[in-house]
Every structure is written in structure tokens, then in C-alpha cells.
Design a protein around this nucleic acid. Structure first.
Lengths: 339, 339
DNA sequence: TGAGTTTTCCAAAACGTTTTGGTAAAATCA
DNA sequence: TGATTTTACCAAAACGTTTTGGAAAACTCA
């Protein structure tokens, strides 16, 4: 593995000149630069990352820790999210470090500590933000750039990231459902400490009341963002005296479990029961029947988060600190909309 | 951010002693070690990774480049795979670097070059191995430890990784299908340069002939491992004079597309048409009807690959260089098996 | 011509660790 | 007691870059 020293030696130049030639500084002549670039290429010289990092005091790496309850559980949301982060990072020659840790666990704290205090990453992206989130406080204290999807309640002006404005989306979705004649509409949510749960449940309830439907407490149940959670929650709803005729789920994965439960209980989805999700992950188009959902461009959101982060790291002027995205309603067969 | 120098200064000790105390060397007294550990902890000292890497000449990081044709495409297989790698890495305090690049593209070459020559990773994992794969040659030349899922044809004895033995699996699957009365059985595969396609198609054909069914060329079509590819391939099969009554797919995602196409063409899956997949990704349990598939434990395989790699990096003696896994047949409703 | 300016290069310091090759002091032994 | 071993520590080198602060050579201009 040739070092910059080897390149310098073969060219009879100083290390400095080689370094500056490769970095495109103005104080090296056209010809030498050319020679340097060629020989470096020919010798297969690639700068050692650790040395560069140590000197430059940055790592050209951003980090993301998947907040997965159970590690082996593969959420398509995360897959798209990670792909977006990775691609945006790669487009600027940055790398993406990935790990998983259960939310609010000691492992999570440990990982963040190691990465951040040890200078392993220049910045991080967080999602599944909690209403009150130690991560944002920790990151703020350590003065490390970070962006997040969904603002925690601790964050005021300094928030940098993406927020989804779901009011109109839920309004539209519930309009659609009531137009189909539904009025007993349930909501399957997630852990109450999550910002998405907070936002989406509230938007759901507001939309409901604006349509003159009284929200009913027993139609609001808790899942855990997985198909299994959705399945179990649906069973609980079906056991009610008056089960709902429509179910709105906090995410698509939950809805997939609900579809499954409905099938197992011989409901005809789209006729007996309307089901809607949230996210618009690729899978949702391939459920049977295809899932009505509030589609948000996860991949694009991830790229945006990464781009914002990279700008923050580079101390670029950021025109728009918080980017708001509105999900779009995709009406598919699961809500009896189209066939 | 305190450095080791700061810790040494506050303790009136040398840098050396602090370093050795923290690393657990024997030549530092019990009491000093205790003092060092405590103050380091109290000061929030975390060793700088870049410096450590530079000195130790290793990065405590392994890499994986997702071989994704289109970046925004989120394959649940990859999600599980990455989760497995990440968890195994984390269990040894290693980190996982992730990126995506289209197979056999210049970006792919660039990434591997940067990571490996630049010493950004201590080893890599590769999958979606091609029959002849420049990556294995490149890695072999650069003498970097690596493990792979599926052995390319270039690899002889030195192969280190996981292979799936699918003969029995296909035998069993096709036995199941013929027992249901099927004899016109199609295969939807992938790019011919992929090792999995090579293996699985061959196993499929062998199983077929062993059951006294003549493989028919027009029942073997090519997909691209995505639902869309599966959908299109299925349309082509349905357009035949004599469409197949059963379809075996090279992976679950393809099968999901096939299910979709069958639905759109009003075939009743499980009755008119049997469908089977391969992989056993979480999604496959939630299709409608649930998908019959050859289940391989993707998460566990990924962990195994990572563990092997870490052992290779640590130059441990590796007892078993190639670990063979047999998929198990999961019979579900999509093949008319159970209800 | 000689003073200033520009061009092109370079030596040395720094980044924060780990490791090598010690050395005093204390403990052990004859 | 003096020689030897063990214990507990440390100074300095090294890892491979980037950057600082020049400095010689070439050019410009009066």
C-alpha cells in the first residue's frame, strides 16, 4: 500500500507538494500537478483515511443508528431510509456508518457516546424521535451537527431537519373514508412517547371532529409499528361489541398485520372493512388488496436529511432549516376506493 | 473533548501509563489503574478513533456495499442482511460501514477501492456474488479479509463464507407441487451472471427431471429480483399458449410481483395457480395468500458471515471455513398447500 | 540594474494514539 | 551487605496525512 511518501520519493518532490497537488491547491505548477496525479494513479495511491481524519479533525462519515426494538426485525421503512442516507452521503464522498440499538437502551447511549466523543462521525441523523429525547439533548451538548425527522418537544428554533405536515393528509383520508359511509373509524397507533404517534393521533382526532364524528376512546388502540403489533391490535378491535368498519394505522407495517388479521377473520377488505396505512413503503403496493396509504417519500426525505446534515457539517449557509413535507393520499383497494 | 494527554496531566502520570492502564496491561499497579479508569470516566475521555486507527493500523470497522441496481429500491433481504451484519459487528465493538452501488458499475469499483486501499475498513462482506466476480479477485489481490454469501466460480479452497445447499429444498418443493397435480411448472429467475440464479435454476431443473418432467425452455423466464420484474415475467408466462399452473420464483420479491400479476388477471392463487418463492423474508408471511417459500435464515446468515470475517481479521484459527445452510420449505396457502 | 512580486516548491509541526525500549526504585535473594 | 529480579513508571518514536510559515527562483517593472 503506497503512501504519500512513496509517491513523493518516486517523483523527487516533497510530501507537501504531492499533497497540495492532489488537493488542487494553486501553488503547484500545471505540469507538476499533472505528473503527480498520473504517478499517484499509476502507483495506486489512495490517501489513508485515518491519517487524514486525524489531521483534518473530521471523518467524512455520518452516522445513523437504527432505532429497532428487535434487531432482526427488518422494517422496509428503515431500508429505504438507509438507502437514501447512503446515496446522499456517497454523492459527496462521505460514508455512512450504521448500527442498530433498541430505543432508549444502554446500548444506544453507548453507541452514540463512542461515535460522537470518539470522533468517529462528523454528524448523525436521528428519526423515530421521542417527545422528550435524550439524544437531542446529548447531541446539542456535544455540539455535533445532527438532523432529525420529526422535531422533539425539546427542540425550539435550532431544529434542523424534516417535518411532515399531516393535517391535510388526514383530513383528506378521513374525508375519503366517510364518503364511503364509514363512521366507526379506529386508529391503531404506537408507543405514546413517539413523536409520530403524538402527531398522527392528534391529526386523526382533529380530522374526525371536524367531520362531526365524536372520537371514541375504545377505538384507539396501541400497536408497536410491526405487522405483529397490528395483528394483535386488530384482534382486540374485532372483539369489541361494535367493531369499527374502518381502521387507520400509524404506519404501513401495522396495516399489513391488520390485513392479515382481517383475512383470518373472514372480513372482506374494501367491503366489510376499510384499511389505511401511512408511509407508502414499496410493500404497500403489493399487499392484497393494495393498501390505501398516506404516502411520504421516505427515500427523498432521507436524502434531504443527509444533505442538510452535510451542509451543517460544512458550515454552509442553510437557507431553509426545516423542510416540511406533506404526504399524499394514495387511494387503493383496501379502503374500497378504486378497484 | 478531552484527550489522553489531558487525563495524564490531571493525574500527574505519563501518557504511556494512562494508555496502558486503560488497555489492561500488566505493568501498571492496581491502584493507579483504578485511578486512571475513574478519572478517564469522570472526564468523559473516549479514545480518538482516527488516532488509534492510524497507530494500530486497523479500523475496527467492516464494510458492506449493497449491490442495488436502483438505489431507492429497498429490498427486505438487504434490510435483514444489514441488520445481521451490524449486530454481529456491534457485539465485538466493531462498526459497520454501509453504502450502495449498482453491481459491476464504476461507482462500485470506486467505492471498494476507496475503502480498501484507503484503509477505511478491515474487511468486507459481499453477496449477490457473480459467477465471475471482479470483487473477489480484487479482494484477493489486496489481501484484505472478506467473506461471501455464495462462492463465485473463481474461488477454490480459499473460499470463506456461507453457501446454501438447495438441492434437497428444491426437490422437496417440486415434490410438493407435483403432489398437488402440477406438471407445467415455470421458473422465474434473475440475471444469468448471478451465482444464485445459476444454482437455483440448476437445482430446479435437476429436481424436475428427477420427477420425470421434461424442463421446457419457454417456461423459464428472466426477472430481476424485484416485484416489478416478477410482475412482467408473469405477464409473459400468462401470454403463452399453455400457461404454467405453478410458478417457482428465484426470490420472494419476485413472487410478490407474481401474486400481484395473478390477481390482476383473476387467477385464484392456490387453486388455479401455485406460487413459491425463496428467502423467507418477513414480508412473505403477510402476502395474500401467504407465500410458500424456501426459507433461509437471512439474519443468521449475515451474522455468521460477519463472525467469520471478524475471526479472519483477528487471525483466529477458523475451524470451519465454509458453512453450509439448507433452506427449509415453508408450505403456505399460495401453493394450495394449507389454508 | 535592482527592488518588488509572483510562482513554485519545501521543512517541520501537528493531529492523538500505541508501542518500543528503556530506567529508577523497591523487593528479593545469596 | 551487595547482586539480582521485579515492579511501576516514562520519554520518544511512529502511524500518514495536512497545514503553516517560509524561501529560493523566476518574473515584472521602473
Amino acid at each position: 500500500m503506497p503512501t504519500i511518501r512513496d509517491v513523493a520519493r518516486t517523483l523527487n518532490l516533497s510530501i507537501t507538494t504531492v499533497s497540495r497537488a492532489l488537493d488542487g491547491y494553486g501553488d503547484v505548477s500545471k505540469e507538476t500537478r499533472q505528473r503527480v496525479i498520473e504517478t499517484a494513479q499509476a502507483m495506486g495511491y489512495v490517501p489513508n483515511r485515518a491519517a487524514r481524519q486525524l489531521r483534518r479533525q473530521r471523518t467524512d462519515t455520518i452516522g445513523y443508528i437504527v432505532p429497532a426494538e428487535k434487531p432482526q426485525f427488518a422494517d422496509p421503512f428503515f431500508a429505504e431510509f438507509v438507502a437514501g442516507l447512503g446515496d446522499e452521503a456517497a454523492s459527496t464522498n462521505y460514508d455512512l456508518l450504521v448500527s442498530t440499538a433498541p430505543p432508549d437502551s444502554p446500548e444506544e447511549q453507548d453507541l452514540y457516546r463512542r461515535w460522537i466523543q470518539g470522533g468517529k462521525v462528523d454528524g448523525v441523523i436521528i428519526n423515530r424521535t421521542r417527545l422528550s429525547d435524550w439524544r437531542v439533548n446529548f447531541l446539542r451538548e456535544s455540539k455535533l451537527p445532527f438532523t432529525c425527522l420529526e422535531r422533539s418537544l425539546d427542540q425550539g428554533e435550532e431544529f434542523l431537519g424534516v417535518e411532515t405536515d399531516i393535517k391535510d393528509g388526514y383530513q383528506e383520508l378521513l374525508g375519503h373514508l366517510t364518503a364511503q359511509g364509514h363512521s366507526r373509524i379506529a386508529f391503531i397507533g404506537a408507543d405514546a412517547s413517539l413523536k409520530v404517534q403524538y402527531d398522527r393521533l392528534r391529526a386523526f382526532q382533529q380530522a374526525l371532529t371536524s367531520l362531526d364524528i365524536q372520537p371514541q376512546a375504545n377505538l384507539i388502540v396501541e400497536g408497536d409499528l410491526t405487522p405483529e403489533g397490528g395483528y394483535q391490535a386488530m384482534l382486540r378491535l374485532l372483539a369489541l361489541d361494535q367493531p369499527p368498519t374502518a381502521v387507520v394505522c400509524v404506519n404501513d407495517l401495522t396495516a399489513i398485520g391488520v390485513i392479515h388479521a382481517a383475512h383470518d377473520n373472514h372480513c372482506v377488505i374494501g367491503r366489510d372493512l376499510a384499511i389505511a396505512g401511512f408511509d407508502g413503503v414499496a410493500d404497500s403496493a403489493h399487499t392484497q388488496p393494495p393498501l390505501t396509504t398516506l404516502d411520504q417519500p421516505v427515500y427523498a426525505i432521507a436524502r434531504t436529511l443527509a444533505r442538510l446534515l452535510l451542509q451543517a457539517i460544512a458550515r454552509e449557509k442553510i437557507v431553509q432549516r426545516v423542510i416540511t413535507i406533506k404526504p399524499t393520499l394514495l387511494i387503493r383497494a383496501s379502503s374500497g376506493g378504486k378497484r
